[in-house]
Write a protein that binds this DNA or RNA. Structure first.
Length: 967
RNA sequence: GCUGGCGUAGCCAAGUCCGGCCAACGGCAACGGACUCAAGAUCCGUUCUCGCAGGAGUUCCCAGGUUCAAAUCCUGGCGCCAGCACCA
């Protein structure tokens, strides 16, 4: 990736990045006796070029790491790429077919045709992209340790994964059982997912599982119907077969079943058995079969509703509850229909009160449920597929959600629970099912993808109650950002089941140690890797070799079992063990919200299985996404509402600091943000402004460690505010409240400096100290600007990034100064309000400070508050006893109500009349400038006479709230 | 359907856990002003309604409820988004 050094922003940032590198700031150095901080983000899969959305989380990780570094902790911030599975293969395939966008990107990055051709090899593509990612991270200013860089297809990583799986197997975390996998007869296992890496069509297909229901004929053969609603067997009136064509015999466990050829072929793949002779359907029409459970005899009838390619091509008819069956029944000739009608019966009831208004409409009228729904949705006949499907789906959901059986042995129980119980009755030795895709799935090779039973699939036993509770137990001791995720996790654990751990087929990954014909799947091999980063660094530095990475080595390093093999390896092995114990556990694992359901739970599962409690992870941080205007997760192709620039373009426009501030300031991390380039532009401008403002404070006095002695009000106020803001920023960082930290540092502080200047403040040593603190506060979010500012202060010997974060302790606090200033601010608001309704340009403003007796009265207010309100009676009592107030009793009654508000101001401020007068007198120039009022007078209520105040406004004055006269 | 999340002024987005300090942080955009020959940048101000005196009225998806007091708590409704299994 070519960064353009002629761009001044880029140039500045490259310079500081080089400086960090020269001082090895990203390098993880264990410092025994000092606390450490291990943070990582879920490594990305090398599936293409990264965009501004990906960088959001990565940048948060760096901000947090940088803050911890400034708290004096040793930092471990590694990174890698996850090439296992399909991403690299997908990318290599795009290169191989010379996808125009991909080729253009590669050319733009300076690759020639030969380079591009080499990327057709997935492993090479993965390594190339991995390096690109790292370059990009460094350009963003992330201070990471590049010696940890690993790709999951590296040999050493595979050694590690191999150990992980042998160990899991030893611990009994792997179990073998049958599994139904999508499978191409030519290419073997394929993945059915919307990205269609393996497919030419059908990526959105879902796997549908039908229950099989046996209907014995008199001759012993069994018609095999397929259904999604086995509980409706109690309402069967007949069996449907296609009008023409043939069925085949399927012989399985000693039975002769009859079903359509497509279904028989599927069952052979999924359950075994063999296909026997064909049988013409016409020979079956009119015969009778026995309904299971009810033992009734019902006829076999032809109907065009049967689709031979779906299910078994045999359908059990339940006219009362299946709209299609009802309609088919109506379309039968009268001679066949008449005898059937009396047998139609409802077997499921939906209580009236569980219907919502829409349901109620569809279930209006009389008749059977299927009849009513078909009528409500205006189903015109069997050919009216759209309406029929809708009617079927509607009734299916309604009865599943709220229906109860009204007949049979499960009478009164809910449909949802009865469904499975009934299915088990048909085949006591274990239910027969047939699985198929909801739409045709075609492999890249052109063959149709089928579902095949894999009898000996290995699973990770996440469903195991002990393992599950171990995992949840560990999660209770963790910190989650946002905290709600902790709660959510126990919900996720509720449905988390065993997951396939390995598979056969073409994808990248580590061979399964127990049987190398399997490859370990990509989630299982990407959740314990934080442990490997520690070792990887030592391999990269040459302290360890790939040959060292034996199972015994990992037992020794991670589990503390065994001993180094030879005396010359002893030291290296021991060092690896020490480093691991130093850096572990993981303090924060950060990832996008897509990882909530799989990656993070498995990350915890793996750690609880393999490591003792003290080494369990301490925290998980989840960031939401940058989305496009349509609310979709952002991708480069989705550019509605404005083009999304590639990261390097965004970097040259807004700088790394601009982007970083955008991420931090735009929204809380726990919220999707719509991509708006204006916001970036603004963030960039704000960085430059802030830098400029900091640089201004650099001029003047030299640095000094002496305590500041402040005598002027504005200086005291400024110092006190700084102390408050800095403490607030520290608190925000401690809670990883990035947005508040950013807002205080880049919005509140600049405003504070401006007001200080506007109020005439110019205490150089104070400004100097404030500027130095500010520089360091800029480091976590905008590190390049921070270095630039810091160097302007002439601080040498160290970089801002290696200093400590300000504590605010060296700014004297003056609580009353803040309250005084607030009094002034309140007066400013009042003046502004007056000016708003004042037409002419103002000539003069007179401020009247309240009479001393009002201050005295205000002091009595707090003692007279009853249930949050001023109790006027007791207030007057108290005043009556005070000599100063006796003369003003009538006024007191009039002002009592208003005192409530005015009291707040003066009680906080602790103002005396003299102080208030001095405060406003001192602010005359400032107010005059700010409001463009030529003349400002400050009088007291008592020393003004009626001639100066004809409307008597001066009597509105309260302590802390002067009366005003605008002329 | 299940599970989770969300609905705040023109747009983005804080606040909601722990009710009052909220006409509601911040940003964008727009408008006015300063500066300028001009534009841009920058700075100041305004942007729910009304008001020639610092005030009043009406707001935080909708409808109820609790409370002296609700964007915030409770009940019901409407609407939007994501994940749902091998896909990292």
């Amino acid at each position: 990736m070519a960064a353009d050094p002629t761009n001044p922003i880029v140039d500045r940032e490259l310079r500081w990045q080089a400086a960090w590198k020269a001082r090895h700031l990203g390098r993880a150095v264990a410092q025994p006796g000092r606390s450490k901080f291990y943070i990582l983000f879920a490594y990305p899969g090398p599936s293409g070029f990264q965009h501004v959305g990906h960088m959001r989380g990565f940048t948060y990780a760096d901000m947090i790491a940088r803050y911890h570094r400034m708290r004096g902790e040793a930092i471990f911030f590694p990174g890698g790429t996850h090439a296992s599975g399909l991403p690299a293969i997908t990318f290599a395939a795009k290169v191989a077919r010379r996808d125009p966008d991909t080729v253009e990107e590669l050319h733009a990055r300076g690759l020639n045709d030969a380079d591009i051709a080499s990327l057709e090899v997935p492993e090479k593509a993965a390594r190339y992209l991995g390096n690109e990612y790292w370059d990009l991270w460094e350009r963003l200013g992330l201070l990471m340790d590049r010696s940890t860089h690993v790709t999951t297809i590296d040999l050493d990583y595979q050694r590690f994964i191999s150990w992980q799986f042998s160990t899991l197997q030893r611990l009994g975390k792997l179990v073998q059982k049958p599994y139904y996998a999508s499978y191409c007869p030519v290419d073997g296992p394929v993945s059915v997912d919307p990205s269609e890496t393996d497919l030419s069509s059908g990526g959105t297909a879902e796997m549908v599982t039908y229950t099989l229901v046996p209907f014995p004929l008199e001759d012993g053969r069994v018609l095999l119907a397929a259904t999604l609603r086995p509980e409706t067997v109690y309402g069967v009136t007949n069996v449907w077969l296609p009008p023409t064509g043939h069925l085949v015999e399927w012989q399985h466990s000693g039975q002769r079943y009859l079903l359509a050829p497509a279904g028989a072929a599927r069952l052979c793949e999924q359950a075994g058995g063999t296909v026997g002779p064909a049988v013409d359907v016409a020979a079956l029409h009119g015969k009778t079969v026995t309904v299971p459970l009810t033992r009734e005899s019902v006829p076999i009838l032809p109907s065009s509703l049967v689709e031979p390619s779906v299910g078994t091509g045999v359908v059990m008819s339940v006219p009362a509850h299946a709209p299609a069956d009802w309609v088919a029944l109506q379309e039968l000739p009268e001679s066949e229909r008449a005898p059937l009608l009396p047998t139609v019966r409802s077997i499921i009831e939906v209580p009236e009160e569980s219907l919502n208004p829409a349901d109620r409409q569809s279930m209006a009228g009389t008749g059977f449920p299927a009849q009513k729904v078909a009528a409500a949705l205006k189903v015109s006949g069997l050919k009216d597929h759209a309406a029929l499907d809708e009617a079927t789906g509607h009734l299916y959901r309604l009865e599943l959600r709220s229906g109860r059986m009204s007949t049979g042995e499960f009478r009164g129980e809910s449909v949802a629970t009865v469904r499975e119980k009934v299915a088990r009755r048909f085949f006591p030795e274990g239910g027969l099912e047939i699985r198929e895709f909801s739409q045709k799935v075609i492999c890249r090779c052109g063959r149709e993808v089928i579902i095949r039973r894999v009898p000996d699939q290995w699973f990770l036993a996440y469903g195991s109650p002990e393992w599950k509770s171990q995992m949840l137990e560990a999660s209770k001791r963790m910190h989650f950002y946002p905290p709600e995720y902790g709660e959510e996790l126990s919900g996720i654990a509720g449905w988390f089941e065993d997951r396939p751990a390995v598979r056969r087929g073409k994808w990248l990954g580590t061979p399964f140690p127990a049987d190398p014909s399997w490859v370990i799947e990509p989630i299982a091999d990407s959740t314990f890797y934080p442990a490997y980063y520690v070792v990887r660094r030592l391999v990269a530095e040459g302290d360890l070799t790939v040959d060292d990475l034996t199972p015994e080595f990992f037992d020794y390093v991670y589990l503390g079992q065994g001993a180094p093999p030879t005396s010359e390896r002893k030291e290296s092995w021991e060092r690896a063990r020490r480093e691991f114990l130093y850096w572990y556990p993981v303090d924060i694992n950060l990832g996008g919200k897509e990882h909530k359901r799989v990656h993070f739970p498995v990350f915890l599962y793996m750690h609880t299985a393999l490591l003792p409690p003290p080494l369990q992870p301490r925290g998980i941080f989840i960031n939401w996404w940058i989305t496009s205007y349509t609310g979709e997760k952002l991708s480069k192709k989705d550019q509605k509402g404005g083009a999304v620039p590639p990261v390097d373009v965004a970097l040259s426009r807004y700088g790394a600091d601009g982007l970083r501030l955008y991420y931090a300031l735009g929204a809380s991390p726990f919220q999707d943000v719509k991509w708006e380039e204006d916001q970036c532009q603004n963030a960039h401008a704000r960085v430059e402004e802030t830098l400029e403002l900091v640089l201004q404070t650099a001029r003047g006095a030299a640095s000094s460690d002496d305590p500041l002695s402040l005598t002027e009000h504005v200086d005291r106020w400024f110092s006190a505010q700084l102390s408050e803001v800095i403490h607030g920023v520290r608190d925000a960082w401690d809670g990883y409240d990035l947005r508040s930290a950013a807002q205080a540092t880049y919005v509140t502080l600049p405003a504070l400096f401006r007001r200080y200047r506007a109020r005439g403040g110019n205490h150089l040593p104070l400004l100097r100290r404030a500027g130095e603190a500010w520089c360091r506060m800029l480091v976590p979010i905008t590190p390049h600007a921070a270095e630039e500012a810091s160097s302007a202060f002439g601080e040498s010997g160290s970089l801002a990034s290696e200093r400590t974060f300000p504590t605010g302790e060296d700014f004297p606090r003056h609580p009353t100064a803040i309250a005084f200033e607030r009094t002034l601010e309140q007066a400013e608001e009042d003046i502004a309000a007056l000016l708003k309704v004042w037409n002419a340009p103002p000539r003069q403003l007179t401020l009247f400070v309240a009479s001393p007796w009002k201050y005295r009265a205000a002091e009595l207010v707090p003692a007279s508050i009853r249930q949050g309100r001023l109790d006027v009676k007791s207030f007057i009592e108290k005043a009556r006893a005070d000599p100063l107030l006796q003369a003003h009793l009538p006024d007191l009654a009039r002002f009592a109500g208003e005192f409530k508000r005015a009291e707040e101001a003066s009680a906080v401020a602790g103002l005396t009349p003299g102080e208030e007068h001095a405060l406003f007198s001192g602010a005359r120039d400032y107010l005059s400038r700010r409001f463009r009022i030529p003349e400002i007078l400050v009088l007291t209520e008592d020393d003004a006479d009626a001639g100066k105040d004809p409307k008597g406004r001066r009597h509105r004055a309260h302590p802390g709230k002067p009366a005003m006269l605008l002329e």
